[in-house]
Design a protein around this nucleic acid. Structure first.
Lengths: 123, 123
DNA sequence: CTGAATCCTTCAAGATACTG
DNA sequence: CAGTATCTTGAAGGATTCAG
């Protein structure tokens, strides 16, 4: 599989938009948020991030690693031991999206009310 | 079409996650960013937001309106004249995502370098 | 002008099974 | 343990057409 296929750089899109998609993706947000706390191993992350599949976790981690947000430390032992941690850049990214996530959470009640009002006029 | 089908509230997902998807969606970001400046008419928005289809613009606007971020003012004239503007909540949302977008843009060079380094070790 | 309705293509998520 | 390979399907997005 080519790099461009693997990381979908084909879709014509400004670079920042692509980065934004990576850090705000379903699993990207959760992985970044989890790793703020401390480094995690692969299976640890699987358990920490509710119901993420192996495939999606691996994919998300690879994307974040390639973007320079996550550092992958594979210790040459048997059985394999791989630790994931945030880089400095990744920590910045995590704080940004986490800030947005917290704002969103604060505003959930407002949005819910708005939706009820909106749906009222439709049925 | 049911409301739940129209606004995909089916997928089990925490509410804040859904809101996050709306405001960070491909077109959501651009629409919010555009409306920060001033109110826009539908066709004006189409021209302002590069290459958005009618369908996606209408869909995005409806979602944002339902969430209480965008106000829709349809003037009862012929031909139709509809203006879209940000609510107070929408303005807050726009500032949040715009902040994230600007951070992302600032870090594009770092990410590009990280990607090059990453791809180097693969070929 | 501002949409709604329909069809169609593509693509990403998820499940499953397998490997070093 | 930490992934990869393959397959299937649902959903998102685009193009087009029609309507008030």
């Amino acid at each position: 599989m080519t790099v461009s296929a693997k990381f979908n750089v084909n879709r014509a899109m400004c670079p920042s938009r692509l980065i934004l998609e990576h850090v705000t993706s379903r699993w990207g947000v959760l992985v970044l948020a989890t790793l703020i706390e401390r480094p995690y191993r692969f299976s640890e992350l699987r358990r920490a991030v509710d119901k993420v599949s192996e495939k999606m976790l691996a994919q998300t981690l690879q994307t974040l690693e390639r973007d320079g947000f996550v550092h992958r430390d594979a210790k040459p032992v048997i059985p394999p031991h791989v630790e994931y941690s945030l880089t400095r850049l990744g920590h910045e990214a995590a704080e940004q999206v986490w800030g947005l996530a917290r704002w969103t959470e604060r505003r959930v009640p407002d949005v819910v009310k708005a939706r009820e009002a909106y749906d009222e006029g439709r049925g």
